[in-house]
Write a protein that binds this DNA or RNA. Structure first.
Length: 192
DNA sequence: TGGCAGATTTTA
DNA sequence: AAAATCTGCCAA
């Protein structure tokens, strides 16, 4: 289990969104260790991207986005769910990569209990679902992702041809941008 | 099996 | 009022 180096997060946001595919997200809690392979991401940019939370300036909610890259940006949405992002770009920019789906690896029984389902594919195939399965909440906002307990590790090499890029999901602005990336033919992607 | 409404809270 | 979502219900 090799944790990624801190410099990994200094990549340009779109590049990071692609290179996060195939990496493993791991969270060690008192309930046990859970992990999954990242199979779907979305990039949110500083410039010309009104869908990005940071586009309307720094607020209490999105402050972590403007901090150094390699930290968790977690926020609460639709009164029910959390979304987990990896802060990216240079400090002060306000960019991030949303993690939209995982392929479960470790701690599957724990994830099933948290999600209240036994169906493997529905444990982590969505941004809100994976937070519930992994036990990620607003308390994790700002955590460094290159150290325990919540971290990202090397896992598998992905060829560029295995990556599909499409429009992002669930937004009403900047709909046309191809900033969603997922692993071709992966069963755990939230949508084709 | 696909589409849609409702849940529920924070933010602008 | 809208939101980087999810679930259950309904119709076909």
């Amino acid at each position: 289990m090799k944790i990624v180096s801190p410099s990994f997060f200094q990549l340009q946001t779109e590049t990071l969104a692609r290179l996060l595919l195939g990496k493993k997200l791991i969270y060690e809690t008192t309930e046990g260790l859970c992990s999954g392979i990242i199979v779907e991401t979305e990039a949110y940019l500083n410039e010309n991207d009104p869908a990005c939370h940071a586009s309307r300036g720094k607020t209490k909610r999105n402050a972590v986005m403007f901090g150094p890259p390699g930290r968790a940006y977690v926020y609460f949405i639709y009164g029910n769910h959390f979304c987990f992002n990896v802060v990216s770009g240079k400090e002060g920019k306000g960019e991030a990569v949303l993690i939209r789906a995982l392929q479960p690896v470790d701690g599957i029984p724990i994830m099933k209990r948290r999600r209240a389902t036994t169906e493997l594919v529905s444990l982590t195939n969505g941004s809100g679902k994976l937070c519930q399965a992994m036990g990620i909440t607003i308390d994790d906002n700002g955590r460094k992702l290159d150290q325990k307990p919540l971290y990202i590790a090397e896992h598998m090499h992905i060829e560029p041809a295995e990556i599909v890029s499409t429009t992002r999901i669930g937004i009403s602005q900047a709909k046309e941008k191809l900033l969603r990336f997922y692993l071709r033919n992966n069963h755990f992607v939230s949508r084709k």
